[in-house]
């Protein structure tokens, strides 16, 4: 695993600047939570790291070298919507195989697919299933297995639980924590749900209008927020408290 560094990254679409000189580090083996409101550029930041959004200025570095944005990326991304992140016409096994590096022989490939499926707590026998036969939570695990298949150094998780049922969300979050422990994954974990981020992240960064407004250890940012916007987020995180 490696360190992913965003160094004064700006992204502009036409005249509309989405990210303003964002600097952020995802340290080796740690999870950084990224929170912020809709449209503030969270997804854009992640997409820039894998070459899906154009970086206007600044640099995105992996262990000090620019991240390749062509071919198989050493940084892999898991998307929000489990219903759109798997090709409906490809089996689970085919989707995962596509991300495997090199051209493994048939046997090897099948073993690797089975290993990855077991890793994300799925029955390896499901390799032949089409996404339509899987529930949202199962699809999200397949997407995670596909990302892991590419032997990434860093994983970007963009709202991976927000489309999932609460009962499944818990299982996926537990899985993410297990994987970090077992594989030492470095991860950028994007979510709008502070309670979810709190559960998985070591560090927390708050993005507001394309700028990082606060950044620090998760416990510190949540326990002693210094920026007004962070306080605002924390205040709106708990509508339930008013009732109970």
């Amino acid at each position: 695993m490696s360190t992913l560094t965003f160094h004064e990254v700006s992204v502009r679409y036409g005249t509309h600047t989405v990210l303003h000189e964002v600097s952020l580090e995802v340290p080796e083996g740690e999870t950084v939570g990224l929170v912020g409101e809709s449209g503030c550029g969270k997804s854009t930041l992640a997409r820039a790291a894998v070459g899906l959004a154009p970086v206007t200025s600044g640099a995105i570095l992996l262990d000090g070298r620019p991240v390749p944005t062509r071919g198989r990326r050493p940084v892999q991304m898991v998307f929000q919507d489990p219903y759109s992140s798997l090709d409906p016409r490809m089996t689970v096994g085919e989707s995962i195989a596509e991300a495997l590096p090199g051209r493994p022989a048939r046997r090897e490939r099948q073993q690797e697919i089975a290993r990855l499926l077991a890793l994300v707590h799925l029955d390896p026998g499901r390799a032949g299933d089409l996404p339509g036969q899987l529930s949202g939570g199962q699809r999200q695990r397949v997407a995670l297995a596909r990302a892991l298949a590419a032997r990434p150094q860093v994983i970007l998780a963009d709202e991976i639980t927000s489309a999932l049922d609460v009962s499944v969300q818990g299982a996926v979050l537990n899985l993410i924590r297990d994987m970090r422990r077992e594989l030492g994954l470095s991860m950028l974990f994007i979510s709008h749900d502070l309670a979810v981020v709190r559960y998985v992240a070591d560090h927390l960064a708050v993005l507001h209008a394309g700028r990082i407004v606060e950044h620090g250890p998760a416990a510190r940012v949540l326990g002693d927020p210094r920026h007004d916007y962070t306080r605002h987020l924390l205040a709106s995180a708990h509508p339930l408290k008013e009732h109970t």
Binding site: R47, Q76, S85, E98, A99
Partner: peptide, 25 residues
């Protein structure tokens, strides 16, 4: 669709993308 983005990140080339992911869909 995100699966196209995911395939790109996994290093799938443009022609194969067209053939495997776009055409069937």
């Amino acid at each position: 669709r995100d699966y196209v983005a995911a395939a790109r990140i996994a290093g799938v080339g443009r022609v194969r993308m067209l053939w495997r992911h776009v055409l069937p869909n």
